[in-house]
Nucleic acid binder design. Structure first.
Lengths: 132, 132
DNA sequence: ATAAAAACCGAGTCATCTACTCGGTATTAT
DNA sequence: ATAATACCGAGTAGATGACTCGGTTTTTAT
């Protein structure tokens, strides 16, 4: 029942990109956030493949958001970075005993509620919280 | 970001105990729910140590709820059965960069909201949902 | 009193996942 | 041409989850 460091790092990385203008080198983000460069690179690669960010090679290159901060919410981020998104498998994989399982509906409802909450948190709202 | 099978089995086991009167042998619960006996035993032992259930040895023994169904909510169950309860460590362990971490408050709020939701789901509400 | 039914206990295993690391290649601004 | 950057595949160490196994203790029913 833990959100992985991968997702946590990913969110922090995206936040840094959201704060900056133009492209920011990954190394710079890693340094600011105290995250291993090699690892953050994997994370950014993944986010890039899903078109959350764009990349530019060579000097003065780096990464930049490909979407508006208000369009990137936590649910989307976790869908990319968590390998198994959703609280229990039976929600999306379909268990054989679903019909007579007394608690399946509990998990399903909970899963929905959590995902709703996640959608309310966007990079924009986080930026605004940190505007002081 | 998964709820473990341990917790899922635990909830289903507790549900069966809640339905029955007196003591129910663990084997019977395991059979009904299609859960490994050896494994369910570990789970019940854990729940018993935390006084959610009581045990009785010998023939016509078994396990029974030690609390009222409305007093046992999902948050309490997960606190016993998940080894790491809470969505991110920084919430309870305290990270060294907490002060300048832009997203700590996000996780904290989310964690609180999820836990609130979990408290609303009790064995009683699950029993009522399955009353047809 | 004995046999059977149950809970109790500690240890061990196997697979999967996370959180990395490492060594190298490709691209591009200066 | 050089240096800065992204890109890529493989590998690894540790933790955890989901069990299994072999036994011990307690208690009820006969």
């Amino acid at each position: 029942m833990k959100i992985s460091k991968r997702s946590q790092y990913g969110l922090r990385g995206l936040f840094r990109l959201a704060q900056a203008e133009g492209h920011t080198p990954m190394r710079e983000v890693a340094k600011k956030e105290g995250i291993s460069e090699d690892y953050l690179e994997k994370i950014f690669t993944r986010l890039e493949k899903k078109d959350f960010i764009t990349s530019k090679r060579g000097p003065s290159g780096g990464y930049a958001l490909a979407m508006k901060p208000e369009e990137i919410n936590l649910r989307l981020i976790l869908e990319v970075l968590e390998n198994n998104f959703s609280l229990v498998e039976c929600v999306d994989e379909g268990c054989s005993r679903l019909d007579d399982c007394p608690v399946a509906s509990v998990w399903k409802r909970l899963d929905d509620e959590v995902k709703e909450k996640l959608e309310l948190i966007t990079l924009k709202t986080i930026l605004e919280n940190n505007k002081d």
